[in-house]
Design a protein around this nucleic acid. Structure first.
Length: 286
DNA sequence: AGATCGCCCTGCTTGC
DNA sequence: TGCAAGCAGGGCGATC
């Protein structure tokens, strides 16, 4: 599934290959792919036709394209399996092609939204004065955003009565951290996923944020640089899926730090992977 | 209002 | 061999 670094690569691809172009026609092949667009598939297609695409933006795992001379933006979320592809028009349709956007210029390429599991989608929303689609106004800045406020995050963490992994996945506190990178950052920080947020000191929060940024920047460095091809491809050539993980998916394998066998626990309809020695469970149960 | 949890979806893997 | 259950999980909305 695309994590924040992959989404950032997609943003760069959209910026390079889609921004500035004028939409000719939109073909919605699966209504669920535009389910967040209240006016429906036909309304989506009609509203987008003729519009010029502006600068590609991202917050967390959300992408959006403001439309020039329009109060609206195209919002995109890749969900679990979504891809945005810039394809030559004569390339055969992908099996899970959900939306096709053609352009008026003679570049010979079109934008395709392909999504096997249809957790993702596109939609049109009003752009707020802050410059983001209104429906994601509640999404916090992500840790790679220069305006992310570390001090405010620490204060918010302390104020919550919850545990750290829940907080990391709470998009109103910090965005763009998914299940995989949460486990990776917690492993690097030697923190158990159920540690209460109220126990976090300023240095501990700072160290955790540093590890989150390291995990993301490592992935960006591994896959973000090679991307300068025609294709805006989440699952393709970027090499992200070769990323080396220290915690996620490593149940029964030795901890890369101490050799203790890694464990997996069912957690919130998901899994948490951790080293039982490096990441001690909190002593006090609330 | 903060916290929790069920649900959406499909393809691959596992188990009987 | 075949079918069913399990699993993956971001984000939203209902509920307390």
């Amino acid at each position: 599934m695309p994590e924040l670094p992959e989404v950032e690569v997609v943003r760069r691809g959209l910026e390079r290959w889609v921004s500035g172009r004028i939409v000719k026609t939109v073909e919605v092949r699966h209504p669920r792919a535009v389910r967040r667009h209240l006016a429906g598939p036909e309304g989506f297609a009609k509203a987008l036709a003729g519009q010029r695409v502006g600068e590609a933006m991202r917050r967390g795992k959300y992408l959006w394209l403001p439309l020039d001379d329009s109060p609206y933006s195209v919002l995109a979320h890749l969900g679990m399996s979504g891809q945005l592809l810039v394809q030559p028009e004569d390339v055969p349709d992908e099996k899970h092609l959900r939306i096709r956007i053609r352009f008026e210029d003679g570049q010979g390429t079109e934008l395709r939204f392909v999504d096997q599991r249809t957790f993702g989608g596109l939609s049109l929303h009003e752009t707020t004065p802050e410059g983001l689609p209104d429906v994601i106004a509640h999404i916090a800045r992500d840790p790679l955003d220069p305006l992310f406020d570390d001090t405010a995050f620490h204060a918010a963490l302390r104020a919550r009565r919850t545990t750290i992994k829940r907080a990391l996945l709470d998009q109103s506190l910090i965005s763009g951290v998914g299940n995989i990178y949460a486990d990776e950052a917690l492993w690097r920080s030697k923190l158990h996923y159920e540690r209460p947020t109220g126990t976090f000191t300023r240095p501990r929060t700072a160290e955790l944020l540093g590890h989150i940024r390291d995990v993301m920047n490592d992935a960006l460095a591994a896959g973000g640089t090679s991307f300068d091809s025609l294709y805006v491809n989440v699952n393709g050539e970027s090499g992200y899926f070769d990323r080396s993980l220290d915690a996620y998916g490593r149940e029964g394998e030795p901890c890369r730090r101490c050799g203790t066998l890694m464990r997996r626990r069912a957690w919130m309809n998901r899994s948490s992977y951790f080293c039982p020695k490096c990441q001690r469970a909190p002593r006090v149960s609330s």
